[in-house]
C-alpha cells in the first residue's frame, strides 16, 4: 500500500498545494460532516501541544471520526523505555491515521517508515510542522486571493522559528519577495538564504522594524523573540522591544496587508493591534481547523470530489 503520510510539505508542487487549499476551502464552507464515520484517528503527543492537539482532534471530531491518543508523554510506555517504533506499531493496530507530535527531529519521518498507517507530522522538534504551514498558506491565499508575487515580511526570531522556515520553502513556486526583519543574533540561518539563492527567491534582510520598513508588506508574519534564545542577555535587553508591533505602526501599510502569527503571542503584538482590520492571527488559527480537516482526509485517500459529493 502506498504510504500517504504527510511529514513535510516543503517540496509539494503548486498543484498539490492548490488541491489542499481547495479542500480546506470546501471544509470552511461546511466544516461538519460524516465523511470519517467509522474511522479512528490517533493523536500521539509525545510532546505536549494543547493548541495543535485540540485543532486536530476538533478536525477529526467534526468529520465524524473517533479519536484516541494521549496528550502527555508522561502517561505513555515511552517512560518505561518503549521505543517510538514499538509505540507506533502498537497504535497502528488500532487507528486509521496517526497524528503525532514529538520533541525529536525526524521522529515523524521514522514513524512513517515503520508503519503502513499514514502519519501526519504535527511537529517534530524544531524541524517541521506541515499543518501549521498549510494553515499559513491557506490564510495567505484567503486574505490575498492568491499566493503569487506577494511581499512577505517575516519578523522576530527567524533563526529558531520553524514556521518561518517551512513557510519560506513552501512559497517557493509562487515568486514571493521576502523581507527578513530580525536582530543580528536571530537572523535567518545561512542554509535558508542559500535555499533562496538556489531557487531564485528574492529576499532582503534588515534589522529596522518601523512604520516605513513595513509599508510595502502584503503579509506581516510575526514571531516571538524569546529570551532563552539569546546567548548574550545584554543583546536581548537591547532588542527585546525593537520587534514589537504597535497599532501606530500601521499608518502607512497597504490596505490588503494582514498580520499573521503562529500563536501563542507574548508581547510581540500589542493588544491595540487586535482591533485593526489588518489583524488576522485569530482567524488564522481558525483556518487551522479547515487545513487539518483537509490533511486528515488527504492521507486517508479521500478526494476533493468525494468530499464535494458526500451526501
Amino acid at each position: 500500500m502506498e504510504n500517504r503520510s504527510i511529514v513535510s510539505i516543503a517540496d509539494y508542487s503548486r498543484e498539490k498545494i492548490q488541491y489542499l487549499l481547495d479542500m480546506a476551502a470546501e471544509f470552511e464552507r461546511k466544516p461538519n460532516r460524516t465523511i470519517l464515520q467509522g474511522k479512528v484517528v490517533a493523536t500521539l503527543f509525545f510532546e505536549p501541544s494543547t493548541r495543535t492537539r485540540l485543532s486536530f482532534e476538533t478536525a477529526a471530531n467534526r468529520l465524524g471520526a473517533r479519536v484516541i491518543g494521549f496528550a502527555d508523554p508522561k502517561i505513555t510506555s515511552g517512560t518505561k523505555g518503549e521505543t517510538l517504533k514499538d509505540t507506533i506499531k502498537m497504535v497502528s493496530n488500532y487507528a486509521d491515521v496517526i497524528v503525532m507530535r514529538h520533541k525529536l527531529e525526524g521522529a515523524a519521518l521514522y514513524a512513517s517508515e515503520v508503519t503502513n498507517v499514514p502519519i501526519i507530522n504535527a511537529g517534530d522538534g524544531s524541524n517541521l510542522h506541515p499543518s501549521q504551514t498549510m494553515l499559513d498558506l491557506y490564510s495567505i491565499y484567503k486574505t490575498q486571493g492568491t499566493l503569487e508575487n506577494l511581499n512577505i515580511y517575516m519578523v522576530g526570531d527567524l533563526k529558531y522559528g520553524r514556521t518561518v522556515h517551512s513557510l519560506l520553502m513552501s512559497m517557493r513556486p509562487y515568486n514571493p519577495t521576502f523581507h527578513f526583519i530580525a536582530p543580528k543574533e536571530l537572523e535567518m540561518p545561512e542554509e535558508y538564504k542559500e535555499y533562496c539563492k538556489e531557487k531564485g527567491i528574492k529576499y532582503i534582510e534588515q534589522q529596522d522594524f518601523t512604520e516605513d520598513t513595513i509599508a510595502d508588506a502584503d503579509i506581516l508574519y510575526m514571531t516571538r523573540v524569546q529570551k532563552e534564545r539569546f546567548s548574550d542577555l545584554m543583546e536581548y535587553e537591547r532588542v527585546k522591544d525593537a520587534y514589537i508591533l504597535r497599532a501606530d505602526m500601521l499608518g502607512k501599510c497597504r490596505d490588503n496587508m494582514k498580520i499573521l502569527h503562529p500563536l501563542p503571542r507574548v508581547n510581540e503584538i500589542e493588544y491595540d493591534v487586535d482591533d485593526s482590520k489588518h489583524a488576522y492571527y485569530f482567524q488564522q488559527a481558525q483556518n487551522g481547523l479547515y487545513a487539518r480537516e483537509a490533511l486528515i482526509c488527504d492521507v486517508l485517500g479521500i478526494t476533493l470530489d468525494e468530499i464535494k459529493n458526500e451526501k
Binding site: T83, H102, L104, D124
Partner: peptide, 11 residues
C-alpha cells in the same frame, strides 16, 4: 544533532 531521532532510538 543531539535531538535527532537517530541518536535516541535504536535504528
Amino acid at each position: 544533532n543531539p535531538v535527532c531521532i537517530t541518536n535516541n532510538e535504536p535504528m
